[in-house]
Design a protein around this nucleic acid. Sequence first.
DNA 1: ACGATATGAATGAATG
DNA 2: CATTCATTCATATCGT
Lengths: 217, 217
Amino acid sequence: MEPQQQQNQHQGNGACGSSGKGNNCHCRPTCPRWTPTTDQIRILKELYYNNGVRSPTAEQIQKISARLRQYGKIEGKNVFYWFQNYKARERLKKKIEGSSTSAADNLPMHQRPAAATNWKPEDFANKSRSQSITSAGVSATLPSYSVYTGGQMGDHGYGPVTMEKNFRDCSISSTGSSVVGGSRSQNYGWVGIDPHTSSYIFFGQKNSADGNQGNDK
Amino acid sequence: MEPQQQQNQHQGNGACGSSGKGNNCHCRPTCPRWTPTTDQIRILKELYYNNGVRSPTAEQIQKISARLRQYGKIEGKNVFYWFQNYKARERLKKKIEGSSTSAADNLPMHQRPAAATNWKPEDFANKSRSQSITSAGVSATLPSYSVYTGGQMGDHGYGPVTMEKNFRDCSISSTGSSVVGGSRSQNYGWVGIDPHTSSYIFFGQKNSADGNQGNDK
DNA sequence: ACGATATGAATGAATG
DNA sequence: CATTCATTCATATCGT
């Protein structure tokens, strides 16, 4: 974790989003799981340590993932989970080892988005509070794709928790050639904002039979 | 591409991988990987089977590791991982091998510390209420007999099947002789924080021209 | 010496 | 935010 020891042997691509061609592995269309590239990791840690980003907001996550997409395919939820895991594990280590040796609790957590750091995926569905984290750590940058920070994406249901019991799948957000809307029955996928394609594509419907769009948990 | 850096061969000195059989080595602090001693394993299994410890809490982990340290170098994370792996593999084995021992999966796991599944930092801080796990959890240290109380009596919170999507295809890495080029570095800083001070905030690189910097690669 | 297996370690994903 | 599951990589150990 802290120590940079990313095992990079298959990351960067090859998973499933690779442009099918030399398919050594004719894996099924399902993505195993996100394998961060070293660059992505580096940036994430950058944010974590230098920017004090711990629990990025939805908007931040989108920006981050958009930026990180340069280095490999990535979804918003990956960023979300990454921060959660990283933080949790930092903490756990301290608790477990908890001895003296560890310290350095001082994090440059200056610019924390004071207000909305506690947004919950569940609540996300029904709340329209878009705070202007614009000045927060992450926001101050990425001028290009300004996500709809206050637009209609307020209730785009972007939390992972909104999933019912679907299997894990991965939304393939291809930049340019997308296959969304194919024959997939359900795409509850994470919000996928694509700066290049058009705008945003997020499938809030996990199941047709549900009939509960703005799910209110 | 993938900056895969070679791992280090720490093994040269035979510090850890003692050739001796019953001999165990509590190698020097530079041991890349914890090699449990027979005593440690015995006790761990003791806890696993007799005490029904599956996912020890942070407190338990600390106690266990402290206790086990008598028999060799060990850290909290070792204990943590051990239980996690052991539990996971027991389950895995069962699924694959097919349940042999069949029922009688009930283990006396009632001795789990009441709040085992909910340890919080707050509680961890300083509570006057010491649970009995102080003796139940860790005290079962060296009974010195077989720990296999009855075989696989371990499975408690995971009874109901939950496996469905069990696919995996092209991932069989070459195990064995082929050196796929490891990239893990020896880091043993569970108790150590590592300073990631890469001065490179991508969020700040927005200044060049207000064109688009989203695609600069 | 290999090759295979067992197992420590790490981490993405998910749930409560 | 805490805890757990699953998967995978890496290496120690053992078998041949």
